[in-house]
Design a protein around this nucleic acid. Structure first.
Lengths: 219, 219
DNA sequence: GCAAAAGTGTTGTCGGTACACCCATGC
DNA sequence: GCATGGGTGTACCGACAACACTTTTGC
């Protein structure tokens, strides 16, 4: 079967939770056919590179993020998805804490965090890819501890709960929430507290060393 | 980024359950470098074709199966996975009833059902793909009704239970099993029974029309 | 009558949910 | 002193697991 100029790319839906909102990293395209449009970061895989390696590399090059949770999601292949050239895209999801700093190259016209549920108009089929990633993130949060990637080293249970509430888009009961994460052994107290805020100081927690991923779906 | 002779293929792990065993369709390669080896069916995607369409087409061409449950699993991309040419493979899983008949083309040296847990030596990285598919099938069985694709139109609860037992590789209690599938509304009685076997006749059931896929992960 | 699978109910445990008040601090 | 989020316990309910015997047929 002849394949012509078929290309393979990775695309990266990078999430965080900040200020009570699920956010995604977008970069602004400089060149036609999507000049001025925002897009999720991504790029072609190298000749001698796996998609996993390409995903890490593209993430580093286009956003300066490293050492993040990264998971392959789905491969999108509509023939018209890239108007320039036939290109199949292996979509990934990445999770980072809101403190992560972003920096892109001068090939792009900017980078920033955007509301994941109400993104600006996006290039290519990135709207669809983003919607798919949001669904997967919700599913995954329910049966794994991926939330650890969205939080700093130490955090209060209130912060953890807010991450869940934002992603699942529902209110949770603090007593039930606390009991669950504690008796699942998902987190442990650091022994420290954070004061200096205008309310009672919160005990701080960290995720347990063993990164349990009960139903992880990576090969 | 230059990509040279990069190709994109689909590979299909086709499962059934028969005679108390999880089985997979394999075809026998005629040509080097894997002449005589068994492989899971697959092939390159067309110039103007999605991977989903390519998966259906390849399945039809290489096994003569149509109208089956088909799900994209993962994209494998080790540079050395195909010694002939760089080729990324989008792996899929298909589920068919054991009554399905197989027929391949004369490009292959045979087709047949093999034990999925103890396959013969396989071409390419198909051992890894198969192992990944088995894991996903197990996970999926637990929270969906994909089993419907593995059974004929009408079946006894005993047959359904055996499908679960074979895939999950554990014994289930017939009373608990029956109660669960009935009160989940997964199946309904057809009103008929199957006699002619040397034991009490079994009531027959069918899956409910609404194919519930609670946590389906397709875009 | 015997082998073989079908069919059937109860009980205990555990996890999940619902629910409201006091606490410690910064200002 | 008041506003703000932190922190805590109980009671109910439904889901699930454990468990053994009778029934109906073909031979």
């Amino acid at each position: 079967m002849k394949q012509g100029d078929l290309g393979v790319a990775v695309d990266l839906v990078v999430f965080t939770v900040d200020e009570g909102e699920l956010r995604v990293v977008l970069i602004r395209m400089k060149r036609a056919p999507f000049a001025g449009r925002w897009a999720i970061p991504g790029g072609r895989i190298g000749e001698d590179e796996t998609v996993e390696a390409a995903a890490e590399r593209e993430l580093r090059e286009k956003t300066s993020l490293t050492d993040v949770y990264l998971e392959q999601l789905y491969t999108f292949s509509e023939p018209g998805r890239d108007p320039q050239a036939r290109c199949v895209s292996v979509a990934h999801m990445a999770l980072v804490p809101p403190t992560a700093t972003l920096r892109t190259t001068d090939k792009y016209d900017g980078i920033g965090w955007f509301p994941a549920l109400r993104p600006p108009p996006l290039a290519f089929d990135h709207k669809r890819i983003l919607a798919y990633a949001v669904r997967r993130l919700r599913d995954k949060l329910a049966y794994s501890n991926v939330a650890y990637s969205l939080l700093p080293r130490a955090f209060s249970l209130g912060e953890l709960q807010r991450v869940y509430e934002v992603i699942l888009d529902e209110k949770l009961d603090p007593r039930n929430f606390q009991r669950r994460v504690l008796q699942l052994g998902m987190v442990e107290a650091t022994g420290e507290v954070r004061s200096g805020e205008r309310h009672r100081p919160a005990r701080l927690y960290r995720f347990h060393a063993r990164r349990l991923e009960p139903l992880a779906v990576r090969p």
